Structure formats: C-alpha cells, structure tokens
Amino acid sequence: MAKIRRTDNSRLDAPKGLRPSVLPARNRESRDRFGRATEWVARAMGTPWFLLILTFFCLVWIGYNTWGPENFRFDSAALGFTALTLILSLQASYAAPLILLAQNRQDDRDRVQIEQDRQRAERNLADTEYLAREVVALRLAMKDMASKEFIRQELRSLLEELEKDRPEHEQTGTAGDGGR
C-alpha cells in the first residue's frame, strides 16, 4: 500500500495562509468587488426606502392574488400566500450572510484604522517627548547664558576696578597734557 505523504501546509490545523485553499485562487480584485457589492446590498437593506419598497411589493402581491382575476392569480390566499412567504424567506436567508460579510469588512477596516491611529499616537508621543527634552535643554542652556543685566553689572565692576587702578592724576585729566 502506497503511503501518502503530507506536507505541513496541507494540514487542516495549519493557519489559513499556510494551507492550500479548496477553491481555485482568484485575484484580489474580484473578491474586493464582491465585498463592495455585499456592502452596497447591506446598506440598501438598511434604508427606509427598502422597507417602503418591500412593503409596497407585499401589498401589491397580496392585493393582486386576493382581488385580481381568478385565472391569473398565482399565489392563493387560502394557502397563506405560500409563494410570497418563500420569496421573503429566500430574501432573508441571503440578507443575513450579506450583512455579516459587510460587517466583517467594516471590522477589518476598523482594525486597520485603529492600528494606524495607535501608530500615529505613538509617533506623536515620541515627538512630544523629544520636543519636551529639547525645551528642557534650551532652558538649561539659557540659565547658563549671561543675561544683559549680568553683562552690564560685570562691565560696571570692571570699569570700577580700572578706575581704582588708574593713578589719581589720570582720573581728573590734569596731569601734563598741556591743556589739551
């Protein structure tokens, strides 16, 4: 008996991306088109217009099959409008999965948006921390720098020292300059 050899990616307990798909691979664009169509249907079913049209459709159906010409009636009121019930059940059985598909796509978009928001918040936090460190460094550097008042005071004290060191006759301006 020949032994069938299985590779790791053919196991059913492997992650979905690692095992071969049962259906043939389709391009991403056709899946996205189908997803957009399901979202459109789900959005359309959630509108007041859809409810009004469905209500109008049911009223016309019931009215025609109740008061219409007997030869042309196709759904008996005596049987409880079986065809209408089947049509509405079919519509509901397709509506539920389409709505779930649309919700799954929205959840995926929300997940991506949340991840992008988290990354943006992390970048903003890192930028804010960097700017805060720079502001602190500038404040520290400003405290080390001399202010105008400090420089003026130093210049005054230097002038006072120079004037103390000069001989007395130079301070008055009368020493042998010939009256110039």
Results as ranks from 00 to 15, higher is better:
residue 49 W to E: 15
residue 49 W to H: 09
residue 49 W to G: 03
residue 50 F to K: 03
residue 51 L to K: 14
residue 52 L to M: 09
residue 52 L to K: 07
residue 52 L to W: 12
residue 52 L to C: 07
residue 53 I to C: 10
residue 53 I to H: 05
residue 53 I to D: 03
residue 53 I to T: 09
residue 57 F to C: 09
residue 58 C to Y: 02
residue 59 L to T: 13
residue 62 I to Q: 01
residue 63 G to E: 00
residue 64 Y to T: 01
residue 64 Y to G: 02
residue 65 N to I: 04
residue 66 T to R: 04
residue 67 W to I: 05
residue 67 W to D: 00
residue 69 P to G: 04
residue 69 P to Q: 10
residue 70 E to W: 06
residue 71 N to C: 03
residue 71 N to Y: 05
residue 71 N to T: 12
residue 72 F to P: 01
residue 72 F to R: 05
residue 73 R to M: 01
residue 74 F to E: 03
residue 76 S to M: 01
residue 77 A to V: 07
residue 78 A to S: 15
residue 79 L to W: 09
residue 79 L to M: 08
residue 79 L to V: 09
residue 82 T to E: 12
residue 84 L to F: 09
residue 84 L to S: 05
residue 84 L to M: 08
residue 86 L to I: 12
residue 86 L to S: 11
residue 87 I to Q: 01
residue 90 L to M: 13
residue 90 L to C: 11
residue 90 L to Q: 02
residue 91 Q to A: 15
residue 91 Q to N: 06
residue 94 Y to M: 08
residue 94 Y to T: 09
residue 95 A to T: 07
residue 96 A to T: 09
residue 97 P to H: 02
residue 98 L to D: 03
residue 99 I to Y: 08
residue 100 L to I: 06
residue 101 L to E: 03
residue 101 L to W: 02
residue 101 L to P: 00
residue 102 A to E: 01
residue 103 Q to Y: 02
residue 105 R to A: 12
residue 105 R to L: 11
residue 106 Q to G: 02
residue 107 D to C: 02
residue 109 R to N: 08
residue 111 R to P: 06
residue 113 Q to P: 01
residue 115 E to R: 10
residue 115 E to Y: 08
residue 116 Q to Y: 08
residue 117 D to G: 05
residue 118 R to Q: 15
residue 119 Q to L: 15
residue 120 R to G: 03
residue 120 R to D: 10
residue 122 E to G: 06
residue 122 E to C: 04
residue 122 E to Q: 13
residue 122 E to I: 15
residue 125 L to H: 13
residue 127 D to G: 04
residue 130 Y to H: 10
residue 130 Y to A: 15
residue 131 L to H: 08
residue 131 L to N: 12
residue 133 R to I: 05
residue 133 R to Y: 07
residue 135 V to S: 04
residue 136 V to H: 04
residue 136 V to C: 03
residue 136 V to Y: 07
residue 137 A to G: 02
residue 137 A to N: 08
residue 137 A to Q: 11
residue 143 K to L: 10
residue 145 M to R: 10
residue 145 M to S: 13
residue 146 A to D: 05
residue 146 A to F: 08
residue 147 S to M: 04
residue 149 E to C: 00
residue 149 E to K: 06
residue 149 E to Y: 03
residue 149 E to N: 05
residue 150 F to T: 15
residue 150 F to Q: 15
residue 151 I to W: 00
residue 152 R to I: 15
residue 152 R to E: 14
residue 152 R to M: 14
residue 152 R to V: 15
residue 153 Q to R: 11
residue 153 Q to E: 14
residue 154 E to P: 00
residue 154 E to N: 05
residue 154 E to A: 10
residue 156 R to G: 02
residue 157 S to Q: 13
residue 159 L to M: 06
residue 159 L to A: 08
residue 160 E to Q: 11
residue 163 E to N: 13
residue 163 E to Q: 12
residue 165 D to P: 00
residue 170 E to H: 02
residue 170 E to I: 07
residue 174 T to F: 12
residue 176 G to L: 11
residue 178 G to S: 09
